[in-house]
């Protein structure tokens, strides 16, 4: 069973080599003439102002939060889906109940306006 993962393990080592080589080669064969003007932050030609890492809308955070909860719950449903042959109708309904609790969360977030961008 571990042999199944051998391929992925090797790929995990080999795959980054391709982009790594492609991004390192220009360092050797490309020109290198750094200048202050060239390395300036590009914001449409307007000089950049203040700190870059400004604070963003909290809404990005809220959506990530809802995503986190949904993601965790949905991952748990995969074993349930794989074992479908062994399940009774009761077992399937238990899975449905699990989804319905999730739906309740979605409805709550919707009603509370957490899904509004503005």
């Amino acid at each position: 069973m571990l042999n199944d993962w051998l391929f992925i393990g090797i790929l995990l080592v080999i795959a980054p080599i391709v982009p790594l080589a492609a991004t390192v080669i220009p360092d050797f064969i490309g020109p290198r003439k750094p200048s202050r003007l060239k390395s300036q932050t590009y914001e449409c030609g307007v000089e950049t102002e203040g700190e870059t890492w400004i604070q963003f809308k909290v809404q990005y955070y809220i959506f990530t939060l809802i995503f986190l909860i949904f993601d965790v719950e949905l991952v748990f449903l995969y074993p349930w889906a794989v074992a479908f042959n062994q399940l009774t109708l009761f077992g399937v309904l238990e899975g449905i109940l699990f989804i319905l609790i999730l739906v309740a969360g979605l409805v709550y977030a919707w009603r509370k306006g957490a899904l509004e961008w503005f």
């Binding site: 909290v58 955070y61 939060l65 986190l68 909860i69 965790v72 991952v75 748990f76």
Partner: peptide
């Protein structure tokens, strides 16, 4: 382990919300 995943997710969600 799965229950620990769920607890960790819940803990992070509420914890980070409190921090915000």
């Amino acid at each position: 382990a799965i229950i620990v995943f769920a607890v960790a997710a819940a803990e992070v969600a509420v914890g980070l919300a409190l921090i915000i």
